[in-house]
Design a protein around this nucleic acid. Structure first.
Lengths: 247, 247
DNA sequence: CGCTGGCTTGAAGGCTTTCAAAGGGTGTGG
DNA sequence: CCACACCCTTTGAAAGCCTTCAAGCCAGCG
C-alpha cells in the first residue's frame, strides 16, 4: 500500500482531491474498490482539515457539544478526564491515523478533554453527515461499527489488575506496534508524552514509571534516554505484556 | 412507559408479534414512531428467541465465530476472559434489556466467553442482517452507534485506580440504577453472582469484597445477607462511587 | 549563571493481597 | 429427619507491591 501523492508544508499528507491519507483509519473504507467516485467525493467533502494545534492546546473539552469525530493526521493527542479529587485520568493517546471522539456518540457532549502533545493536524468529520452517508455506504457503516467495537476492547485492556511491569511493557509494545503499522521503526521511537502522562494512563505513580524504566534498562530490556526509547529485548517485553495485549 | 402485553410461562415477556420487550435496549429504535409496520416487522423477524440456558451454561465461548449479538430477555449473563495465568477476568454482567457481543463486531470471532448465572432467555440478532437493515433504518443505525459508544465509556469506568471501597460502592450503585430502570426496587435486590465473580469484575481479591461488605454493613451503609442486598445510606454510597460513576 | 520543571532516587507507610483456617448453607445419603 | 460433606464465604495475620513524601539530579532556557 503506497502513500498517495503528497504536498509539502504544514498541511502536508492530506491526500489529493480523491484520495485519503493512507494511514487514516477510514482509508480501508475509502480506498477499497466497489465505490464509484461520487461516493468517494462525498466522503471527502465532509472532511474539514484543521490545525496545526500547538502543544498543550485543547481540541475539545469535556462538556463541549458533540458533533464530529476526528482523525489524527499528524502529532499526538491525549484524552483525559479530571476525577472528583482533581486528578487527571488519561484515557488514551492517539497517533496519526487514529480516531478521536467515538465515545461521545452516545452523549450530546464530549465526555472527555482532548489536548495536543505536540504539533497536531486533524481531519474533522461531521458525525451526523457521516452517519447519513453510512446508510448509503455499507462499507463505511461497517468501518464505523468496527472502530467503535475495537475501542470497547481497548478500554477493557488496562482495566485488569496487572503489575507495574506488565502495564509498562504493554504500553511500550503497544506504541511499538502502532508506530510500526505506520511505517516507523518498532524498535526506536520517541515518547511524545511525559512520565506523568504515562503514569496517569497506566494508573501508576510517575515515580513507579521511572523505577520500572530504570529496572527494564538495568535488565537489558530496553534503553531509555529521556524520551527516547530503544527496544533491546523484544521477546521478553512481549512476554511481559502478553496477558494485557493478548498478542 | 408501560409493558407490552405478556404471556405467561418460560418464554414470557417476549412481546407480541409487533412489539418488543419494553426493557430491551432496542426498544427505543423499535417503538419510536416514524417507522411503518413493515420496518418493525423486518426487525422483529430477524430476532431469534433462544433459551432457557441453565446456570453455568455457556452462550458462546472465546474464539467462536461471531455472527450475532444478543439481548438478555431474563436472567443475568457474565462475560469473561481467562488471562495468561489462568485467572478469570470478568468483563461485565448483563441484566435483562442489555446487549452482549458488541465487542465482537471488530473481530470475526467472539473475544470473550459468556455464561449464564441463572436461568437465561435471549433474543439473538443476526448482526449482518441487522447492519443491512440499519442502512434502511437510520434510527436503528443510530441506536447501534449509541450502544457501541456507551460500551466504550463503560469499559473505561473501572480502569481507574480506585480504592476497594469506591469500586464496591460503584458496583452496587450501578446495579441499583440498572435494576431501578427496569422497574425493580433500587434499594433491595439479589446479587446473582458470587463474591468471586464480583471480585474478578472489580479486580479485587474475593476476601477484599467480603471485608468491604462487612465494613459497609458495620457503618450502616447497607445490609448484606448472603446474596441479598439492602441499601440503607444511599447518599453516602453515591458519594463514594461518584468518582467512578461520574454522577 | 542560576532558575525552572521534569525526572530520578531513596525510605517509610498504607492498602490490598496472600496464606491459612474457621464458619455456615445446601444437598445428598443413610 | 438427621448427619456429613462440600463449597462458598468470612475472618485473621503476615507479606508484598505500589504510593507517598522528600530530596537530589539534570537539561533547557532566560
Amino acid at each position: 500500500m503506497t502513500a498517495p501523492s503528497r504536498k509539502t508544508g504544514a498541511m502536508a499528507d492530506d491526500g489529493d482531491d480523491l484520495h485519503f491519507c493512507s494511514t487514516c483509519a477510514f482509508s480501508a473504507a475509502c480506498m477499497q474498490s466497489g465505490y464509484d467516485k461520487s461516493h468517494l467525493k462525498e466522503l471527502h467533502v465532509l472532511v474539514e482539515h484543521v490545525g496545526p494545534f500547538k502543544e498543550g492546546e485543547h481540541l475539545f473539552r469535556e462538556g463541549d457539544p458533540f458533533n464530529a469525530i476526528a482523525a489524527v493526521r499528524s502529532g499526538t493527542v491525549k484524552t483525559y478526564v479530571t476525577d472528583a479529587n482533581g486528578r487527571e485520568q488519561v484515557q488514551g493517546f492517539f497517533l496519526p491515523g487514529e480516531i478521536i471522539g467515538l465515545n461521545a456518540i452516545s452523549h450530546s457532549r464530549y465526555p472527555c478533554n482532548a489536548v495536543s502533545l505536540d504539533s497536531v493536524l486533524l481531519c474533522w468529520f461531521s458525525f451526523p453527515t457521516m452517519a447519513a452517508l453510512a446508510t448509503r455506504m455499507p462499507g463505511l457503516q461497517q468501518q464505523l461499527f468496527k472502530l467503535l467495537s475495537e475501542d470497547i476492547g481497548k478500554a477493557a485492556l488496562l482495566s485488569g489488575n496487572y503489575s507495574a511491569d506488565e502495564r509498562t511493557a504493554a504500553f511500550l509494545m503497544g506504541l511499538s506496534r502502532r508506530y510500526a503499522s505506520r511505517g516507523f521503526s518498532p524498535n526506536r521511537f520517541l515518547l511524545t508524552m511525559s512520565r506523568t502522562d504515562i503514569a496517569n494512563y497506566l494508573r501508576l505513580a510517575s515515580e513507579s514509571v521511572s523505577r520500572v524504566f530504570r529496572r527494564f534498562q538495568d535488565e537489558g530490556l530496553l534503553r531509555v534516554d529521556r524520551r527516547e526509547i530503544e527496544i533491546l529485548d523484544r521477546a521478553r517485553l512481549e512476554e511481559l505484556s502478553r496477558s494485557i495485549l493478548r498478542e
